[in-house]
C-alpha cells in the first residue's frame, strides 16, 4: 500500500503539471501546448511504461486496500456498543477505505470522461484550426488545417485522410505524410464549459472528489512513510508538514482547473 501510494503521489504531481497547461496558457497557444502534452503522454515509450505502472498501482492499491479492509473487519466480528474513536485518531485515518473507494469511483468516472474517449473510443477529434488565406483572386478563404509534428500544415479536405488515430495520409496514394494531434483540449474545455448543460454538475463532482482525495492524502502521505519504517524523531515533523501540505495543495490545484474553465 505504501509503495503504490507514494508512487501514485508522484503520478498526481505529473498529472497536475500537465493539467495546469489548461489554465496557464490561454487561447490557441494553450490548446497547442496541452494537446502536444497529451500526445507526449500517450506516445512516449517511457511514459507508456509509467502509465502501465500507474494502472497496475491503482489496481493493486485498490485491491490490496479492499482485501486488507475485509481482513480488518473480520478481526473484530462484534463491534463495540459504545465507541469513542475520535479521542484517539483522526477522522481521515479511520475512513481511508471509504475515502479510497470514493477516489476509485472518481478515477473510473474521470477515465470514462477523457481517457476512454482519447484512447479507446477515439471520439476525440483531430486538432485542426482554420487559417484565413487570400486565394489567387485575392479573396479571403477560410481553410482548415491539421498540423503535424514537423509543423507541416495539412489541409483538412478530401485529399487527406486520418488513419490509425492520428496518422495523416494522402488519400489517393496511401502515403503517410505526417502525424497530427488529437484535440483533447477542446473536449476538456467543452466538458466544463458553461455552455454545456451538465458542466455544473461535472465541476461540482470534480471539486468534491478532490476534497475526498485531500482527506485520503491527509492521512495517507505520512502513513506511507511509517509503513516503510521511516519514522525518525528528526524527520517526523517534516514528513508530517509535507504530507499535509501535499494533501492540501495538490487537490486544491486540481480542483481550481475545472472551476476556472467553467467561469471563463
Amino acid at each position: 500500500m505504501a509503495l503504490t501510494g507514494l508512487f501514485l503521489c508522484t503520478f498526481l504531481v505529473g498529472h497536475l503539471l500537465g493539467n495546469l497547461q489548461l489554465i496557464l496558457k490561454t487561447g490557441e497557444e494553450g490548446r497547442r501546448a496541452f494537446n502536444e502534452y497529451a500526445y507526449f503522454m500517450s506516445h512516449n515509450p517511457a511514459i507508456k511504461i509509467l502509465s502501465w505502472v500507474t494502472y497496475i498501482s491503482i489496481l493493486f492499491h485498490a485491491i490490496d486496500g479492499i482485501l486488507l479492509t475485509i481482513q480488518n473487519k473480520k478481526a473484530r466480528p462484534i463491534p463495540y456498543a459504545r465507541n469513542n474513536p475520535s479521542k484517539n485518531s483522526s477522522t481521515p485515518a479511520r475512513y481511508m477505505a471509504v475515502l479510497g473507494t470514493l477516489v476509485l469511483v472518481f478515477i473510473a468516472t474521470h477515465m470514462a470522461n477523457f481517457w476512454y474517449k482519447m484512447k479507446i473510443s477515439e471520439e476525440v477529434p483531430m486538432h485542426s484550426f482554420i487559417v484565413s488565406v487570400p486565394d489567387q483572386s485575392g479573396q479571403i478563404q477560410n481553410q482548415e488545417f491539421y498540423y503535424t509534428h514537423n509543423l507541416q500544415l495539412i489541409p483538412k479536405d478530401d485529399n487527406f485522410s486520418v488513419k490509425n488515430g492520428t496518422d495523416l495520409y494522402m488519400s489517393k496514394m496511401n502515403i503517410k505524410i505526417g502525424e497530427g494531434y488529437r484535440d483533447l483540449h477542446t473536449v476538456v474545455m467543452q466538458f466544463f464549459s458553461k455552455d454545456n448543460d451538465s458542466a455544473l454538475f461535472a465541476v461540482l463532482f470534480y471539486v468534491l472528489s478532490m476534497f475526498v482525495l485531500s482527506f485520503h492524502l491527509w492521512h495517507g502521505f505520512a502513513s506511507a512513510f511509517q509503513s516503510l519504517g521511516l519514522n525518525h524523531k528528526k524527520y517526523n515533523a517534516a514528513i508530517g508538514y509535507i504530507g499535509k501540505g501535499f494533501a492540501i495543495v495538490v487537490p486544491l490545484l486540481f480542483a481550481i482547473i475545472p472551476i476556472i474553465i467553467y467561469l471563463k
Partner: peptide, 9 residues
C-alpha cells in the same frame, strides 16, 4: 489480528 493502517489510536 487485523492490519495496521497507522491511525495511531
Amino acid at each position: 489480528f487485523g492490519n495496521c493502517t497507522n491511525t495511531g489510536a
